[in-house]
């Protein structure tokens, strides 16, 4: 649905994006990177608001710069949230929805449905200036989905939302992806992206650092073995550690307490399968199995902060 090929973008002497290649299909995809990494520039390029210096951008197979009509199936939720303070949320969404060619009645119907979907059917009649940041965030998302787009770009959609609203918005984003829309979410909050999707795109200093399922990407980082902490139901950690060291993928094993062992391994999947079996050979049961660096945060840390 989104195809970016060899795209570079300069702002004066600053290279904001450098030879980016990216393909995003239906479902939710997280766009991650530190401030200034080029995430917003990439979203603007996809939305047809910036023209690349080199390379091509295709939105649903069309060039968004040459054909504004290609933007008919795009919904954009930009990062800034102070637009028309004197309009109600309903009027704001309706006005923008009408720009997609919907007549007044259809636009109102679509607006009601979108506000209802983001949980703003009652508060949507408030003035935008009177809304909390979380409410404005929901209204912004409503205007992005009201016209039923196939591609939705969300720039920091959870900013300012309270915990309950965040949980609701995460559910909404997942639902949008489950409906077959292509949802590209830019965010700084890694655990929230992780709860939306496993598919991520990591951008650093304008360059593509990685893209794909973050669990599979994590497996590709061979120089950073997984740490796994295993707790047994009985104090036999020493014998258990001795057996674990014999496994091919285990790099090291250390005894933390008489029931707890910490191992490092290069293959998390294999470890998940074999470690309980080793425990069973000793007549023991694994009561706790945790890996602190098999999540998105550790992947991000390794790829974005380490050289």
């Amino acid at each position: 649905m989104i195809s970016v090929t060899g795209v570079s973008k300069m702002f004066g002497v600053v290279r904001a994006l450098n030879e980016i290649d990216l393909t995003v299909g239906p479902g939710v995809c997280g766009l991650l990177g530190p401030n200034g990494s080029g995430k917003s520039t990439l979203l603007k390029l996809i939305a047809g608001q910036l023209r690349p210096d080199t390379g091509t951008v295709r939105l649903l197979g069309q060039d968004p710069f040459a054909l504004p009509a290609a933007l008919r199936d795009l919904g954009l939720c930009p990062e800034q949230d102070r637009f028309y303070e004197d309009l109600s949320g309903f009027e704001f969404v309706e006005a923008l929805t009408r720009l997609h060619g919907l007549n007044v009645e259809a636009a109102r119907q679509a607006t009601r449905a979108a506000l209802d979907r983001v949980g703003m059917s009652r508060d949507g009649l408030k003035r935008m200036g009177e809304m909390s940041r979380g409410m404005r965030q929901r209204v912004k998302i409503a205007q992005a989905i009201a016209h039923d787009p196939r591609v939705v770009l969300l720039d920091e959609p959870l900013n300012g939302a309270d915990p309950v609203a965040r949980a609701d918005l995460i559910r909404l984003v997942r639902a949008l992806g489950d409906e077959g829309r292509c949802v590209l979410v830019s965010s700084h909050v890694l655990h929230e992206v992780e709860s939306m999707t496993h598919r991520v795109v990591l951008v650093r200093a304008g360059r593509m650092r990685a893209q794909g399922d973050f669990l599979k990407l994590r497996e590709l980082i061979e120089d950073r073995p997984y740490r796994i902490t295993i707790e047994l139901d009985a104090p036999e950690a020493r014998a258990f550690a001795a057996r674990l060291v014999a496994l091919l993928h285990v790099r090291s094993a250390s005894v933390n307490t008489d029931r707890t062992v910490e191992v490092t391994t290069v293959a998390l999947d294999a470890a998940c399968q074999e470690i309980p079996a080793v425990a069973a050979e000793l007549g023991r049961v694994v009561v706790r199995f945790t890996s602190p660096d098999a999540d998105l945060e550790s992947l991000y840390r390794y790829l974005m902060h380490d050289d």
């Binding site: 939305a47 504004p68 290609a70 919904g75 954009l76 102070r82 637009f83 923008l96 997609h100």
Partner: peptide, 14 residues
């Protein structure tokens, strides 16, 4: 000032 161009021109507008 409000950056509303982002909202307008992410739509099929010339």
């Amino acid at each position: 000032q409000a950056g509303a161009f982002d909202l307008y021109f992410a739509r099929p507008l010339t």
